[in-house]
Amino acid sequence: MKRPNGIKNFRNLFWQLDDLDYYYKHSDQQYNSIVIAVTCCGKQSIVSQTIVMIKSMLIFSKQNIHLIIYTDVNHRQLLNELLALPQNKLDQISFEIKTAKFPNVSDQHYYRNFYLKCATQRLFYPVLLPNIDSVIHVDSDVIFMSPVEQLWKHFEYMTGEQMFAMAVDNMNPNTSWYLKIAHNDSLRIPNPTVYSFNTGIILMNLTQMRNTNFFGEMDPIFKQYKNRIHWIVNDFMTIYLAKYPNRYMNLSCIWNYLTDHCDAGQLCTDADQYGVAVLHGSRSTFVKPSLWAPHAAAFRRSEPKRFQFGY
């Protein structure tokens, strides 16, 4: 196998040309890694968001991290961006860059393209990652402002029945989607909470998901509620956990801080005491200053061309 142009540290890189997937592991890295999964699909600008998220994570973390990136964009661009990290940070991570896949469902096109491209990929992790016990799914449009190992520690707080941990979605009673549809017979879906969840950050116990046949229940739920689903993964998890309310744990909103948490005063009161741990630029607020200038400013300061590690 020939060395690809521009790729460093090739002795640590296993390049699987068959399906365009890449795997990288530093030879000295230990195996007790935090596992993070992210989807990077659609526009090329998503690559920049993904790299910013990863760099922000590495700034605060002191533990080894295994990254699993599902994508339908430029695999090589992602690879080169990651291999351009400073060596001390590259030594801290292992990663896989994998082609987005949607197996064992009735309508792959629907799952791949509804709402945002590859948004449902996280629901396939129990099938796609059969040897992984637990993973944190992270949307590409987040910036870490605290160590990811503090978030990973929440797995220890989950009971034996709990498979997921998520933070609350929009808590503004004037704009909450889930409050709005609660009074609309044509849109209403089952909901275990008042404001439901935001699935941009999800702690997922994949072993528990496999043991309870989570994946087997997914396609029937989508078929039953297809005409009522708008925010695809948020809505699915809302419906699923209304049926199994013992299977999730609430995360503090500091771990998934949305513009909705502060657009009508401080609705995430934990943030006043503990600060924001993860900033989420949902609905393009990182890249559209007209929507929410503070989020956009935070992202601009973190763009790859400006984002440099200190030594």
Rank of each mutant, 00 (worst) to 15 (best):
Glu156Leu: 08
Ala165Asn: 03
Asn198Ser: 10
Ile136Asp: 02
Arg188Phe: 07
Thr159Tyr: 04
Gly200Arg: 07
Ser134Lys: 15
Phe164Tyr: 02
Asn198Tyr: 06
Trp152Ala: 07
Tyr178Ala: 10
Ser146Pro: 04
Leu187Phe: 03
His154Val: 05
Arg188Asn: 15
Pro147Thr: 09
Pro190Asp: 04
Ser196Ala: 09
Thr175Gly: 09
Ser134Pro: 08
Met145Gln: 14
Ser134Leu: 08
Phe197Leu: 09
Glu156Phe: 02
Val194Arg: 11
Thr159Asn: 11
Met163Glu: 13
Asn198Thr: 06
Leu179Phe: 11
Pro192Glu: 00
Tyr157Lys: 15
Ser186Phe: 08
Ile202Lys: 02
Leu187Met: 09
Ile189Ser: 08
Asn184Tyr: 06
Asn174Tyr: 11
Asp185Trp: 01
Ile136Trp: 04
Lys180Glu: 13
Met163Ile: 10
Thr199Ala: 15
Gly200Leu: 08
Phe164Thr: 02
Ala165Gly: 08
Gly200Thr: 02
Ala182Met: 10
Glu161Asn: 10
Met158His: 04
Val194Ala: 04
Ile143Gly: 03
Gly160Ser: 13
Lys153Arg: 13
Val194Gln: 10
Ile202Leu: 12
Asn191His: 13
Pro192Arg: 03
Ile136Lys: 02
Asp185Cys: 00
Asn170Gly: 03
Asp141Thr: 03
Asn184Lys: 14
Val142Arg: 03
Arg188Met: 12
Ala165Phe: 02
Tyr195Val: 02
Asn184Cys: 11
Ile181Arg: 11
Ser176Lys: 03
Met166Asn: 05
Ser196Pro: 00
Glu161Lys: 10
Ser134Cys: 14
Ser146Ile: 00
Ser146Glu: 12
Glu161Trp: 06
Ser140Pro: 06
Met163His: 11
Trp177Asn: 13
Ser140Trp: 06
Gly200Cys: 08
Val194Thr: 13
Gln150Val: 01
Asn198Met: 04
Lys153Thr: 01
Lys153Ile: 07
Met163Tyr: 10
His137Glu: 10
Asn170Asp: 14
Glu149Gln: 12
Glu149Cys: 08
Leu179Ile: 12
Ile201Trp: 04
Ile143Cys: 05
Ser186Gly: 02
Ser140Val: 01
Gln150Leu: 13
Tyr157Arg: 14
Ser134Thr: 15
Thr199Leu: 07
Ser176Cys: 11
Pro192Phe: 00
Met158Tyr: 00
Glu149Gly: 00
Thr175Pro: 06
Gln162Ala: 01
Lys153Ala: 14
Met171Pro: 06
Ser196Glu: 01
Phe155Cys: 05
Ser134Arg: 15
Ser196Cys: 12
Val138Gly: 10
Ala167Pro: 04
Phe144Pro: 04
